[in-house]
């Protein structure tokens, strides 16, 4: 119905040349990691194009992809690539493989409490910490205190990405406390002297970011524009937008704009990293 009214609206505009007779609505749904960025994009774009309305909601990458498959959103934001099983579902519903657009780059930051003496961790140490092999901070050069693990809910793209890249596909320790949203993880770590959490670098307020090294002998890097862009920060990823079919009309204009110099400037402002 919504699609139909958009088409009808376009047709009206085309026929009578009435200009902004009907607002075009683009719905965007998905990753909580991208939701801040998507909202900034939408605000700036709508300010310059009053005839277009961009509606942004979060919920998690899985939620966005489900919505794309169910036809309840136009654009899906995802912090992980679509799985084959999801692409298959999209294909059976809409006879399309979907279109993937890399719209920004993100470094997964490791959050530590500001009072924690530990400053850098290697990927191996992180794996051992999050799988429950190392449970005390003194084993990684900190105080003799139990490590309190915080993470995201399993509907989050960050959950899957961190598991695949840092834990090499192993499961999280059962004691990992999962919280709804990156902001809640940051809040928990900021109040817990022995806490560790992970999430987008853009959220990091009131905590410190651990420097991460590829292995014990290599230099440690903080997630910032240069290290993520150059790929020296070991935990970085692309952020994606997915659409069902090759975008046309208002959608194409919007997506092109997000990838333009202006759109990518907003990416940097929000705390993520431009794609090119």
């Amino acid at each position: 119905m919504k699609k139909f009214s958009i088409i009808a609206g376009c047709a009206l505009i085309g026929l009578f040349g009435m200009g902004a007779a009907k607002k075009q609505v683009i719905t965007v749904k998905g990753s909580d990691t991208i939701v801040i960025l998507a909202q900034r994009w939408a605000e700036s774009y709508m300010a310059a194009h009053p005839d277009v309305s961009v509606q942004v909601t979060g919920g998690g990458s899985g939620v966005g992809i489900s919505a794309l498959i169910n036809g309840t959103t136009d654009i899906c934001d995802a912090s992980r690539p679509m799985k084959n099983s999801e692409i298959d579902k999209l294909k059976t519903r809409f006879n399309s493989l979907g279109v993937e657009i890399k719209c920004a780059k993100d470094g997964i930051a490791l959050y530590l409490n500001e009072s924690n003496p530990v400053n850098e961790l290697s990927l191996d140490q992180l794996k051992a910490i999050y799988t429950g092999e190392i449970t005390n901070w003194k084993d990684v050069g900190g105080k003799d205190e139990k490590i309190i693990l915080y993470g995201r809910e399993n509907s989050s793209g960050t959950y899957v990405y961190f598991r695949d890249v840092v834990l090499k596909g192993s499961d999280y320790a059962p004691a990992t406390q999962t919280l709804p949203g990156t902001a809640a993880v940051v809040n928990a770590v900021s109040k817990d002297p022995n806490g560790i959490g992970y999430g987008g670098a853009a959220y990091a307020k009131g905590i410190k970011l651990a420097k991460v090294k590829k292995d014990a002998g290599s230099p440690a890097y903080e997630p910032n524009a240069e290290t993520v862009k150059a790929g020296t920060y070991p935990i970085s990823r692309y952020l994606y937008m997915y659409v069902r079919n090759k975008p046309t009309g208002a959608m194409k204009a919007y997506i092109d704009w997000t990838l333009s110099a202006e759109g990518q400037q907003i990416v940097s402002k929000v705390g993520y990293f431009p794609v090119n």
Binding site: V63, S66, S85, E86, E153, N154, S155
Partner: peptide, 9 residues
């Protein structure tokens, strides 16, 4: 509450 929204039907 946390997982229903994301799960594959």
């Amino acid at each position: 509450g946390a997982e229903m929204a994301e799960v594959v039907f």
